[in-house]
Design a protein around this nucleic acid. Structure first.
Length: 256
DNA sequence: ATGGTTGTTCCACAA
């Protein structure tokens, strides 16, 4: 089973790019983030025409996540448990062919001296609680999406310059490591332990793409049952170089 | 230190 994740930065603005990429790459499952539109504006028919069903959680203007799948989606969960006052569309979870899969869009958290940073850390704590519950089923679990976390120095073009950023602060990295300590594996680092400049995001500003000033912030975390099936993972940089590109590019993982 | 870009929305805000 091949599963991809892609923060598309508006499904409406990106639709031709997304449809083109699906035709070339034909993943079994595609996790989308930053739909930037309400659930009922999601272009379901266009994806159905390519053979995909969809679990969609949208909201006006911001956030929004989805799971596209060639196979049936079961037991859809449409929000991250733990705070019923949180209405931001950042989490959707479903079972596909016995694999429990989440498409997540963690809060950015900047600026760190605003309420956004504690919200980010609290959200990560809730994700850790949910990830703990998912392990109890001893099932293959795949947590994929934009974690908005730079795990280590090798994952950013300028570690010093990003030291104080919400994506790289020690508390943020510790929150990410807490997921690993539960028993999840960063699939990319498991298969490519020393690869540098393996970025998944390049800012639109200041020629970041041309200079390869990137970040690795889109991840797949796998439960032990899923790691046992891990075959390959790669970052597909090509979509970032196209016209009307998202600032993120897809990551594709293959499980036996 | 500032400015650089993109998308959605309402006259900014988020990234």
């Amino acid at each position: 089973m091949r599963i991809a994740t892609w923060n598309v930065n508006s499904v409406k603005a990106r639709l031709p790019n997304i449809l083109g990429w699906i035709r070339e790459s034909a993943p079994d499952v595609l996790l989308l983030q930053e739909l930037k539109g309400e659930t009922d504006t999601f272009p379901r028919l266009e994806f159905e025409a390519l053979g995909y069903k969809a679990a969609v959680v949208g909201q006006k203007a911001y956030n929004g996540v989805a799971i596209l799948s060639r196979h049936e989606l079961y037991d859809i969960v449409d929000h991250l448990p733990g705070d019923e006052t949180d209405s931001q569309a950042r989490y959707v979870e479903a079972t596909v062919q016995g694999v429990r899969i989440a498409s997540l869009y963690a809060p950015n958290g900047n600026p760190v001296d605003s309420a956004k940073y504690p919200y980010k850390l609290d959200w990560m704590k809730r994700l850790t609680a949910q990830a703990t519950r998912l392990l109890e089923n001893e099932q293959a679990v795949v947590l994929g999406g934009d974690f908005n976390v730079i795990p280590a120095e090798d994952d950013v073009y300028d570690p010093k310059g990003w030291e104080q950023d919400a994506l790289f602060r020690p508390e943020t990295r510790a929150a990410f490591r807490a997921l690993l300590h539960l028993g999840y594996t960063d699939a990319f680092r498991a298969l490519h332990p020393h690869q540098k400049q393996a970025y998944t995001f390049w800012d639109y500003q200041a020629g970041a793409w041309a200079r390869d000033n990137g970040l690795r912030i889109d991840h797949f975390l796998l439960s032990p049952e899923a790691v046992d099936r891990l075959k390959v993972i790669h970052i597909d940089r090509a979509p970032r170089g196209l016209d009307k590109a998202s600032d993120h590019t897809p990551v594709v993982v293959e499980l036996a």
